[in-house]
Structure formats: structure tokens, C-alpha cells
Design a protein around this nucleic acid. Sequence first.
DNA 1: CGCCTCCATGGAAACGATTCCATCATGGTT
DNA 2: AACCATGATGGAATCGTTTCCATGGAGGCG
Lengths: 367, 367
Amino acid sequence: MEAKRATIKDVAEAAGVGVATVSRVLSGGSASPATRERVLAVAAQLDYRPSALGRNLRQRRTGGIGLLVPDLTDTFFGQLAEGVLACARSAGEPVVLGSTGDDPEQEAELVGMLLEQSVDRVIAVPSGGADTWEPAARAGMTVVFADRLPAERPGDALSGSAPGPVSGSASASTADLMLLDGVPPPPPVPPVPPTGVPAVLADDRAGIRTAVRYLRGLGHRRIAFLGGPGHDRRVAAFREAVGPQVDDDLVVFATGSRDSAYAAASGLFQSRPDLTAVLAGGNVLGEAAVLAARELDLRVPRDVSLVMYDDVPWAELCSPPLTVIAQPGRDIGYRACELVLRTAGRRPRTVVLPTELIVRGSCGPLR
Amino acid sequence: MEAKRATIKDVAEAAGVGVATVSRVLSGGSASPATRERVLAVAAQLDYRPSALGRNLRQRRTGGIGLLVPDLTDTFFGQLAEGVLACARSAGEPVVLGSTGDDPEQEAELVGMLLEQSVDRVIAVPSGGADTWEPAARAGMTVVFADRLPAERPGDALSGSAPGPVSGSASASTADLMLLDGVPPPPPVPPVPPTGVPAVLADDRAGIRTAVRYLRGLGHRRIAFLGGPGHDRRVAAFREAVGPQVDDDLVVFATGSRDSAYAAASGLFQSRPDLTAVLAGGNVLGEAAVLAARELDLRVPRDVSLVMYDDVPWAELCSPPLTVIAQPGRDIGYRACELVLRTAGRRPRTVVLPTELIVRGSCGPLR
DNA sequence: CGCCTCCATGGAAACGATTCCATCATGGTT
DNA sequence: AACCATGATGGAATCGTTTCCATGGAGGCG
């Protein structure tokens, strides 16, 4: 009853040929039409499926693709994962999934697990820094980063202040007026990956810049940024877009959790009641901002304007519907997978995908 | 530079022992303290990590866990996946992921892929029927279903009418009044799995019943159900809860896509303007219902009350916040993983997890 | 003192595929 | 007619591990 699977030897025997011949036929080598036909017939009849185990051992590679994301509960990473899966399936490659929880330690552990499995191609939304990924690459892994690059220095990802009750209301300088709205955008300078690892990124810089300009155009001057883990590039872009006189109290960080995001948003609103617009660096932060604003009886967009990074289905359900910077999550995953499949030996390439400001109803003119 | 990994042979050589001894030491067999220490030291120094490839081949099993879900973009499945990953990580098992898109054909293909990889333990949110899963089980796979059971008959999952513009406004009988609100709930009869396969399910029946009663209590009599693929049990529960005089026009199905969900919701509202409450069978459908209602200028809950199956973070962001039937997605995944790890040979068990009606603001009294 | 037992140990087989290499037959060319 | 080139074919090695089995030594007991 529990018939175990037929092996190549069974097929060879049944077809009256050698195992080498079977292998050749099945992997497209040369063989006479007669034998080929016979072998195929027998294989079909025995329902033979070559075991990936044997093949992998012989070829010393598992051939699957590793995928490491911070949190599948975040819709954006779900989209990204779907993209990877779509591409991987069309290539017939299995995908081994890991969720890091934005914790470098767990990430390192998962990398170790992949190494053990001889999974030598990995797509990662990195949490750890070079100290995690350098060894992985040195161990012969082909790594492609998606959505982010690893932090340059080991552990500086979550440096910002997780605001306690109220840190400082010293709202001294907010005369950051440098209006650059008329200036044509500089050519999209692709962010250079720190190491020689390929990456697929959204054009955060342009996205943030566009959003900041949009808010500026509505008259906002005190714009806050709500960042999360891995949002370094977005923060940098924000600082750049706002100009040199950034008010540092208006740049606030949360860790990955929803609670932390809520605390950060709430703390921000309370410590700086003078802010007029918020740019949330990810959909979890955007959610937190909406929630915190409602809790504090701040109306959107009347009292505070809100732009969220990431377009997610529910952005349209909010009232008002959220103005967002859309990034193509699915495409990012798909392209990353393409890259990891093709970049076998070739030199790394970095792909930057466009973002788009989708104006809905969560921003209004300054009043 | 590209130092390839050390093998057990290298370790044996360096430690001056046989490979068998190394294997024994590393897998906890008997060995003298002296050798044990030496081997461990050498292994550590060489950074030796046993290759899963060799082991798997020898033991004729990959040892990973397969996870098949319809769509990672759906937050609920993201939660479920996180649960599985958490449990799998604590057991040190890799997880091979596949997304079926609610398509039995893709599902079958993915099962084949897992089979080829010798992944013999699978957690699935099934799309296909017994014709997919029977062979898988027969091939020696340990399968645990999560969230759903496979359709009993091969292809009857999406039987309902995907409403075109308007099908029939013959709103004849809606006198389905059988008030059972006072009757104490029957003991939670666990749904019996059709095959001998273990499953982890939410108590749809109780959840739906509670929701229907709640709506009844608010005075609603014409309650519609918006179902999607795999919601058979929920539909059945709905019919049961409503009573024998179900108005079949009020039970509508969509396929998995967001577009289809929107079309179904919109069609429902247009064809049956007399309905006063909607029960959405999943979060994608809930989203569609909110969108469609807004598009048609139906106010929630003034014009129509809405209950959504699944609690997702954004349910609270809607205005009004959505009243939902919460099911523990993460727990479902976690328990399923536990089951698939322990059920090695034992007889299958089915676990039913409780649901909870979370009343927020999307339901109001009939007016 | 001798024998038996037990434990540590190493050699070798096995797992299921791919692939190198030698062999053999065939057919064409000189 | 002899020889060479070509192509099909099968045997055997290989990948890295686990596990079976045989061997050898040490210690205990009769």
C-alpha cells in the first residue's frame, strides 16, 4: 500500500538499460529515439520522479532559493514574497522562507540554516549589517537584497529615539524653508550598494522627495518623519529633501512592532503639537499614525496631513483615503528573484524601481 | 578565498579519528570523553557544519516542512504563515513555501514539487479537493490542513453566482424569522474532517452563528453573505444560522481576486437594495464590501451593517471601525505546525480554535 | 588465570542521482 | 578491405552523511 517511490535504478531495470542512459534521456542528453521512447514510457508508467535529494548531493547545491523577510504580517512583504514566488515557480525552484522579525540575530541564525541546507541563493530584506552578510557571501552564497540595503555599520539601524512620554518641546528652529519646488529633479542617482551585492530597491529618494515637495506645496513647513527598522535610506532622503535645517525632534523611530509604532506616533503627536504633516516610512507606521491621530482627536487632514510610504489595499478604505507613496512590492520581489537566478557568476547589478505619489485624501492645505 | 565547506571527512582526518566517530559525536552517540572533546574542538575550529544534503539522502527525507497558502497578500495568511514559521524555527526545521492562488492546478503542481524535494510534511490551506490530497497522502506525506478542509467533491468550491449587473430582484420570501436568539448554543460540535487528515480550524460555525445572532438582535432580517474560495464551511454555517428560509440571492460568491470580490459586493448591493446587513466571509471580501458600499453611497452602518470575518489591523482604521469575527491566524499556523511535527505516525487529530466577535462600529440597529 | 562482556572505534555500505570514461557497433572514407 | 570517426551505451565513481558490523582492548567475574 505504502508504495515507495521508484528510483532511477528501477526504471533502468524495467527498461532494460543502464542508469546512465535513463539519466541522459531524462535530462535531455543524447540517446537513440528508440531507447528514449522506451525509457520515457517506462518512467511514466512507474510514475518515476527523480529525487531532488540525489541530484542535489551530486551537484553539491540544493538549488532552492532562500527568502528572508522581516515580517509576513506586513502586507508589503507579503506582496514582495508573492513576487518572488511567482518568479521562482516559473523557474521551477522551491523557495525556503524565513521571517526574521527584524532581528539581526534571528537573521544570522536563519542564514546559518540556509547554509546548512546548501541553499546557495538568497533574497533578503536585510536586518543585520555587513557582519551578517559578509560571511554569507564569503561562504559562496549568491545574495540579492530587496527593498533595503544592510546597515553600513554593524548595529546602527535603530539608533533613533523611541520617544518616551515627552522628550523635548524645544521647537526652536523650524524655519526650514528652502523652497526647491521649482528646481528640476536631479537625474535619479541610484544609491550605490555598500558591498558588491546586487539589490532591487524602490526609488525611495525620489518618492520621499516628491512627497515632501507635495506637502511643501500645500504650505506645510513642520513635517515629521516616522521611521522604522530598515528605513535609513528613507530618513536620509527625508533629511535631504527637507534641507539642512531639519528639526531633529521631528524625526522619530520605532522598532518593528505595531505597539512600538503606535507609541512612536503617539509620542510624536504629543511632544510636537505644532507639526502639521507626517510622513510615515511604512504601512505599519502609517497605520499607527492614523490610530494615534484618532486617539488624540487630531483630524486628518484638517489638523494634520499624512502621507504613507507603501500603497496597500486598505489605504483606500481609510477615511479619508490615504495619500501614499506607492512602491511596487511584487515587482521588487520578482526582479530580485530574476537577479538571483541569473547573477550566477556575473557581476552584480542594482535595480531601482520607480515609486509613485498617489494623491488621495489625507493631505490638505496648511490652515 | 572561496574556501569550500569542510566535510565530515576533513574533520575526521584533522582529529585523527574515523568519520563514523565524528558522526556519532555530533549526533550524540556514545564516545569517550577524550575523543568527544577533541572532535568537537576540531569541528569548531574548522567551522564544520554537517550538510543537510548528505544526511537527507541517507535518511531518505528532507525533513523540511511544506507550507501551501492561497495568497500571502491576504493578511490572514500572512499571520498564519508567521505562526508556522515560529513553530518551525523553534524545531529547527526549514519551511518551503508555495502560494497557490486558490488554483487547484497550481496547488497540485506545488505538491508535486514538494514530493520531488522529498518534503514529506505539509501544512496546507487547501484549494483543491480530495483528488489532489488523496494521492499526496498516499505518497507518504503527512498533511495537516489549516483554516479549511478540502472540498468534498472535486470541483465544487466556486459554485455560486458571480453576479453580473443584476440577476434577479425577485425579493419574494424574506420572512426568515425563526428567532433562535434565546436558545442556548448547542455544544460546539467539531466539524468532522472528511478524510483521516488532521486539521486546525477556527470555529467558523460558532463565529458565524454569533455574528448572525448579533445582527438579528439589532433587528436585521435580510442578511447577505459574501463568500470566497474555501468558505464553504462558513456558508454552510451561515445557512444553518439563518435557518431554513435562506434567501439564496443573498448568498454570493467571488473568486480569490480583489476585483472579483469587488464585483461580487457591488453586484450584491445593486441587485438587492433591500438588504440591511452583510457578512463578509474574509478580509478581502470585507474590504470589497466597504469599497463597494462607499462607491454606491451606502453609509455604514446607517444604510447597511457590516460584519467581517477575520480581524486584521486595518479593521480598526476604517470609519467606522469594522465589527469583526476574529480568528487566531497565528495560532492556527502554530498549532498546525505542531501537529505536523508530532503526528508522525499517530492517528490524526483535529483542532478547533475559538473565534470571537469583536464589536466595533460597523453595525447598527435596523432603521 | 582465563573467559566473557561491553564499549569505543573505524571501515564500508547505503542513499539516488549525475557524469566521466571506456567500450562497442556502425557507417563512411581512403 | 582496412581504418577511423561518431554516437549510443553501460559501468563505476562521486557527492556527504548515517549506520551496520567487525575488531580490538580493557575490565570484571568465575
